[in-house]
Design a protein around this nucleic acid. Structure first.
Length: 294
DNA sequence: AAAAAGCTCAACCGCTTTCTA
DNA sequence: TTAGAAAGCGGTTGAGCTTTT
């Protein structure tokens, strides 16, 4: 399969985005919506590849992005989700309203991976950024990117408030195939595709999905023949009766909190069961040893 | 005060998955 | 059925900023 030529195309801008580019992209998306990334730059008058535009929008320009410090609750959720999902950043991000996969990935790599590495727990990453700290490079670029971004934020009105909390509808997770060109219909943020590493979307929603509390995903809802759900429904998004659209901020918060509590409860249950089994095994072992002794 | 080391995060790269003709 | 295109994802890079020496 041929690889799509992307930013390697001659004549396309790369590197930090300018305020003008941000404005062009934001304006275009506000008018025409997300999607069609390939053709978007041309239509929007940008000398960028579609991939770059998509990334910029998803990770920085989206109005619903919550920037700033990760709260302890969020951190806790990230840790738990990571222990369940591994480095499935987009799925983890899907459970953290307003957070991007890139942000969570960065946060994990800079804060949490080290912590768990030191603790030697199973949270340690399977691969990837366990690399050695890089040698500092000499500064040969006069651009002050962070400053530029901050200035741009001010100009373009991007939400950079550290403490402001926004309530978002959970991101839809596509269980089955849907036409890509319908992406605008589904309020897709970073989206997600298929299942990887043996973890299905159903598993995930079984853990923390909106309104679905059983874990794992009830087997009678899953068509195991092709690994897809019976009715090709959208979890968290439109289907489920589009009820999410009717949710108030308070309901959303309540739901998220409930899901989180249920996740904790489930984990505790599992731990307890394991403990009980261990004790049982120990008793059997003891009695066996005793019988040998006699 | 200056240099070095460490941290952060936006952006890019390359691969996989999904869709379509 | 298949090849190419499009989209999405996770890993990695690197420049600016902050902290330490």
């Amino acid at each position: 399969m041929g690889r799509a030529p992307c930013c390697s195309k001659v004549g396309l801008h790369r590197g930090p985005w300018t305020a003008r580019e941000d404005t062009l992209l934001t304006n275009y998306i506000q008018t025409h919506g997300e999607g069609h990334w390939r053709s978007l730059p041309k239509k929007a008058g940008l000398l960028r590849c579609g991939k770059s535009c998509r990334l910029r929008w998803m990770n920085y320009l989206r109005p619903d992005i919550k920037r700033g410090n990760i709260s302890s609750d969020e951190e806790d959720l990230i840790i738990r989700l990571h222990s369940l999902l591994g480095n499935r950043w987009s799925l983890i991000a899907g459970r953290l309203p307003g957070r991007t996969d890139n942000e969570i990935k960065n946060y994990w790599n800079t804060h949490l991976s080290k912590r768990f590495k030191n603790q030697g727990t199973h949270h340690e990453k399977k691969s990837g950024s366990t690399r050695e700290p890089r040698k500092r490079k000499t500064k040969n670029n006069n651009q002050n990117r962070s400053k530029a971004n901050r200035e741009r934020d001010h100009q373009t009105g991007v939400n950079v408030t550290k403490t402001e909390t926004k309530i978002h509808l959970p991101k839809p997770i596509r269980i089955t195939s849907l036409p890509r060109n319908n992406s605008l219909e589904y309020n897709t943020v970073s989206g997600s595709s298929g299942s990887h590493n043996g973890v299905t979307e159903g598993d995930i929603n079984g853990v923390v999905g909106t309104g679905i509390v059983d874990f794992p995903w009830p087997s009678d809802l899953v068509d195991h023949q092709d690994g897809r759900d019976q009715d090709d429904f959208i979890v968290n998004g439109c289907d489920l009766g589009c009820e999410s659209q009717l949710l108030t901020r308070e309901n959303m918060l309540e739901r998220l909190y409930e899901e989180y509590l249920q996740l904790l409860k489930k984990e505790e249950q599992v731990k307890e069961e394991e403990k009980e089994k261990e004790e049982e095994d120990q008793i059997q072992l003891d009695s066996f040893a005793e019988s040998l002794w006699v």
